[in-house]
Design a binder for these strands. Structure first.
Lengths: 144, 144
DNA sequence: AATAAATAAATTGCGCAAAATTGATTGCAT
DNA sequence: ATGCAATCAATTTTGCGCAATTTATTTATT
């Protein structure tokens, strides 16, 4: 055990998480391509399907993204006709994002995505436990 | 349990992994900034500190990156004087990347990075077990 | 030897991702 | 009422990350 062991790739916790995240996002890509969404657009639409109408701030909070990422994502979803943007009447600084009927209809196609992905990750023994572990880690990392 | 539950953000496995990865990389950022490296440059240097001299193909294999990402990363490390590039004599298609003395010296400062990060992730109960879990997941996702 | 196939890095194009800056709007304290 | 700090989204800049294409080199086939 020399003093540089902490610098070995195999001894990192972050690196495998980083590789896992990229790999899973890549596994989504072909299925998302069928409905012409990127992964970031997809998770944004997930919030929209749940909440129908949200502020940009709410999206940032739920997706852990900042406006530099979110503004262009929302703009692309507007171009595709899935959401609309408008300023809040109560507070002109707030942006209100609203799901359109076209956006809501996309849900019918999107529902196939997690089903198709399921067969890609068949190798995982206990997905529920894994998810709990990861969510616990996320909580530790993001609160503070 | 309706048919759209699979589309809820809270029911995803990928999303928390994706957030964890970004969050940890962000926690590295201030410490890496002190030694003027990005995260990708840092993991590339990790391989260089271990192997001293590698082909670009070997880097791609270890880091799970493609040439579109790796070529500019290597070029920046060359600019900083930490590595040199040269073509292989045996096979002119191969690029050989070699650690310079300056690059090796950087290891002395870099060794502080994982130590400093340690206090950022104090909240994790069983890091060793977590690492095993994540590495097992990485294996499942990347082999195939 | 000539040509085709394979393999490797480099380039291009697009979309994140985050820090830093800008500019508009709000609300509070004089 | 007026100025000032806080709070937003939007913009800018830099750097991944990857698919698709291009270019250079090597290997295999005729």
């Amino acid at each position: 055990m020399d003093k540089y062991d902490l610098l070995k790739l195999d001894n990192q916790l972050c690196f495998p998480i980083y590789v896992c995240a990229k790999t899973i996002v890549n596994k989504y890509a072909p299925f998302l391509k069928e409905i012409d969404l990127t992964y970031t657009q997809y998770i944004t639409m997930m919030v929209m399907w749940e909440e129908k109408k949200v502020t940009s701030g709410r999206l940032k909070q739920r997706l852990f993204l900042d406006s530099g990422t979110l503004t262009p994502v929302i703009n692309r979803l507007v171009e595709k006709g899935y959401v609309t943007k408008q300023r809040s009447e109560e507070d002109g600084r707030d942006l209100i994002v609203t799901l359109t009927p076209e956006g809501d209809a996309l849900k019918e196609k999107a529902v196939e995505v997690p089903i198709k992905l399921g067969s890609c990750i068949k190798g995982i023994d206990n997905p529920a436990e894994l998810k709990e572990t990861v969510c616990a880690l996320m909580k530790i990392l993001t609160e503070e």
